[in-house]
Simulated assay, not measured.
Amino acid sequence: MNKLAEVADGRTLAKAIVNTIPEPFLVLDDDLRALAANRSFYDVFKVEPARTIGTLLYALGDGQWNIPALRELLETIIPTRTVMDDFEVEHDFPGVGRRTMLLNGRKVLYDDESATTILLAFRDITERRAVELERRALLHRTEELVRQQQTLLQEMEHRVLNSLQIIASILMLKARAVTSDETRHHLEDAHQRVMSVAAVQRHLHAFGAVDLIAVDAYLAKLCTGLAASMVSESHPIEIRVAADPGEMNSERAVSLGLIVTELVINAIKYAFPMPCGDARVLISYAVDGTSWTLGVADNGIGKDGGMSPHSGGGLGTIIVQALVRSLGAQMDIVSDTSGTAISITKPGSSSN
Results as ranks from 00 to 15, higher is better:
residue 20 T to S: 10
residue 232 S to H: 09
residue 44 V to W: 09
residue 103 L to R: 01
residue 145 L to R: 04
residue 85 D to G: 08
residue 242 A to K: 10
residue 174 K to W: 05
residue 183 T to H: 02
residue 271 A to L: 03
residue 274 M to F: 08
residue 212 L to C: 05
residue 13 L to N: 08
residue 79 P to N: 08
residue 330 Q to H: 11
residue 39 R to A: 15
residue 31 D to M: 14
residue 342 I to R: 00
residue 233 E to G: 05
residue 127 E to P: 11
residue 149 Q to F: 04
residue 72 E to P: 03
residue 133 L to K: 06
residue 180 S to H: 04
residue 223 C to Y: 00
residue 168 A to M: 11
residue 290 T to P: 09
residue 238 E to A: 15
residue 174 K to G: 04
residue 232 S to N: 12
residue 67 I to Y: 01
residue 277 G to M: 10
residue 155 E to Q: 10
residue 209 A to T: 05
residue 84 M to K: 03
residue 329 A to V: 11
residue 230 M to N: 03
residue 224 T to R: 03
residue 300 G to F: 01
residue 80 T to K: 07
residue 26 L to E: 02
residue 93 F to N: 06
residue 106 R to A: 08
residue 213 I to F: 02
residue 65 W to F: 15
residue 158 H to W: 06
residue 95 G to A: 12
residue 332 D to K: 09
residue 269 K to Q: 14
residue 109 L to G: 09
residue 179 T to Y: 08
residue 55 T to A: 11
residue 328 G to W: 05
residue 17 I to A: 13
residue 150 Q to K: 08
residue 198 A to R: 10
residue 96 V to I: 11
residue 317 T to K: 08
residue 216 D to S: 07
residue 322 A to P: 01
residue 26 L to I: 07
residue 303 K to H: 04
residue 287 V to P: 02
residue 264 V to W: 00
residue 328 G to E: 14
residue 268 I to S: 01
residue 44 V to P: 00
residue 294 L to I: 09
residue 303 K to R: 12
residue 295 G to Q: 05
residue 288 D to N: 09
residue 233 E to V: 13
residue 343 S to T: 13
residue 280 R to P: 05
residue 301 I to S: 02
residue 263 L to H: 01
residue 69 A to F: 07
residue 7 V to W: 04
residue 190 A to P: 01
